[in-house]
Amino acid sequence: MEEDDPRMRTARQFIDAIPHASALGMTVRAVGTGRVVVDMPWDERLIGDPARGVIHGGAVSALMDTTGGAAVISHDEAPLATATLGLRIDYMRAARPGEAIRAEAEVYHMTRHVAFVRATATDGGEGPVATATGTFTVERAPGGTRGSRGS
């Protein structure tokens, strides 16, 4: 996946345009067709369990949602924008203190109006921290040109 890959640019623009994604330090690491990898660094401000230094589930949800949206935007059918319809998140275990969380999302099915997405969050430890499935809107350009905005 090259830096000048147009999909990479699209995914980066998508994430960079989201104030909340920037606030949480999210960075796009890799992009494929309808597939995106996004990292979120560990940060004290994101702690949900101070006794153990564990990142709050809400921050993991924000990462999953953002990565899912970026995967939709990076699909070959080039939606202009997307919004989350539904998201189900399963929390398998606490994220390891001090470790960045990496989310990987893929569009596994796309219809005219809806994208179906699966996502997994890992932190380098054994097994996933969380998994998610989501449904996202697909907003298509009338002429079918590639867009870069939305959430």
Binding site: I18, G58, S61, M64, D65, S151
Partner: peptide, 8 residues
Amino acid sequence: HGGVTAAF
């Protein structure tokens, strides 16, 4: 942000 809504 949908993620903020989820967190909320």
